[in-house]
Simulated assay, not measured.
Amino acid sequence: MVKSPERQRGVQSVDMAIRLLEIVRKESQPMMLRDIAVSAGITSAQAHTYMSSLKKFGMIEQLGDAGRYALSDTTLTFARHVIRNDATLNANINAARSLSAEIQEMVTVDCLVQEQPTVIFAVQGPRTPSLSLRPGTRSRIGNSAAARIFDAWSDTPEMNPNLSRIIRASGYAHAEGTPVPHLASLAAPVFREGALVASISVIGFPDAMAPEPERPVLRALLAAVSSLGGSSA
């Protein structure tokens, strides 16, 4: 069946809107309109029309005086919904729940969203002080155990190369004083078909988060990711 010109234009508009969302998603920082237009191969006026529509529907937001564009919380929430319906990542969430029940500490599952480690699931443990970490919370590369996992397995790590090699060889990362002062975190990678898809983290007081494989918390964390096929690679 031949599509009508109106329907064809509608399909093209949807395709372009998705393309613009993907451009903004891949950029780790909010983008200027002209940069979005250049990346999409359209004029700034055309980009403005699309971005205005995306903003109207709550999928894009403008930040600061410069009006740079970034994905909105609505879009990130939708992305987390899609992630949670992924069978593999849903298994990670179930593993995180079980791990938290076993060790009585806070456990999170992190994935890369807009190229930044982002919490997609968090469960509070009775031994861990109440924290504001929740789905959508992000951390910069290198300032948490989860972020160090993603950095160590990235093509262009920001950390010291020796630290990256140690993390990859041991299969876990440790951070103290981050993301919360006076606490520490341990994280281990989860792989699918050889690719890093998530990180499972445990957050608690430093004495319990000691980076020693024979200690109960780290031993339980490594066992959890191993059961998911997430041992170091």
Rank of each mutant, 00 (worst) to 15 (best):
residue 218 L to T: 01
residue 201 S to G: 06
residue 226 S to D: 07
residue 171 G to P: 01
residue 64 G to P: 00
residue 64 G to Y: 12
residue 76 L to I: 13
residue 99 L to M: 07
residue 200 I to T: 03
residue 48 H to S: 15
residue 163 L to R: 08
residue 155 D to H: 15
residue 122 A to F: 11
residue 202 V to T: 06
residue 56 K to E: 04
residue 180 V to M: 12
residue 201 S to L: 03
residue 69 Y to I: 13
residue 88 T to Q: 08
residue 43 T to Y: 15
residue 82 V to G: 01
residue 161 P to E: 07
residue 206 P to N: 08
residue 16 M to K: 15
residue 186 L to S: 00
residue 7 R to H: 03
residue 132 S to Y: 04
residue 203 I to Y: 02
residue 104 Q to N: 14
residue 92 N to V: 14
residue 40 A to I: 13
residue 43 T to E: 10
residue 126 P to H: 11
residue 198 A to W: 06
residue 79 A to N: 07
residue 110 D to C: 09
residue 90 N to S: 13
residue 82 V to S: 09
residue 10 G to L: 14
residue 97 R to D: 05
residue 93 I to D: 08
residue 139 S to V: 13
residue 19 R to A: 15
residue 202 V to C: 09
residue 74 T to C: 08
residue 219 R to L: 08
residue 212 E to S: 14
residue 145 A to W: 00
residue 141 I to Y: 10
residue 196 L to Q: 04
residue 184 A to R: 01
residue 178 T to W: 09
residue 186 L to M: 05
residue 106 M to P: 00
residue 48 H to P: 00
residue 103 I to E: 02
residue 97 R to W: 04
residue 37 A to E: 04
residue 113 V to Y: 13
residue 190 V to G: 03
residue 28 S to V: 14
residue 75 T to V: 12
residue 23 I to K: 08
residue 59 M to P: 02
residue 37 A to W: 07
residue 64 G to F: 12
residue 13 S to K: 12
residue 29 Q to H: 13
residue 20 L to F: 09
residue 171 G to F: 07
residue 37 A to G: 09
residue 193 E to V: 02
residue 185 S to P: 01
residue 71 L to V: 11
residue 81 H to N: 13
residue 38 V to D: 12
residue 49 T to R: 14
residue 129 P to H: 12
residue 129 P to Y: 12
residue 133 L to W: 08
residue 131 L to N: 10
residue 39 S to I: 07
residue 115 E to L: 10
residue 54 L to V: 03
residue 52 S to Q: 13
residue 49 T to L: 14
residue 50 Y to C: 04
residue 9 R to Y: 06
residue 60 I to N: 06
residue 107 V to G: 03
residue 147 A to R: 00
residue 132 S to C: 07
residue 99 L to T: 06
residue 45 A to M: 14
residue 95 A to F: 07
residue 161 P to L: 10
residue 110 D to K: 05
residue 100 S to F: 01
residue 93 I to E: 08
residue 127 R to F: 04
residue 76 L to F: 07
residue 20 L to C: 11
residue 81 H to Y: 09
residue 58 G to L: 05
residue 69 Y to K: 08
residue 206 P to R: 11
residue 169 A to P: 00
residue 119 V to E: 04
residue 69 Y to N: 09
residue 216 P to D: 01
residue 129 P to T: 05
residue 12 Q to H: 05
residue 159 M to H: 06
residue 215 R to P: 01
residue 113 V to L: 15
residue 128 T to W: 06
residue 28 S to N: 10
residue 220 A to I: 04
residue 68 R to E: 06
residue 222 L to D: 02
residue 38 V to R: 15
residue 152 A to C: 04
residue 29 Q to N: 13
residue 198 A to C: 05
residue 130 S to G: 02
residue 116 Q to T: 06
residue 128 T to R: 02
residue 117 P to W: 13
residue 91 A to C: 08
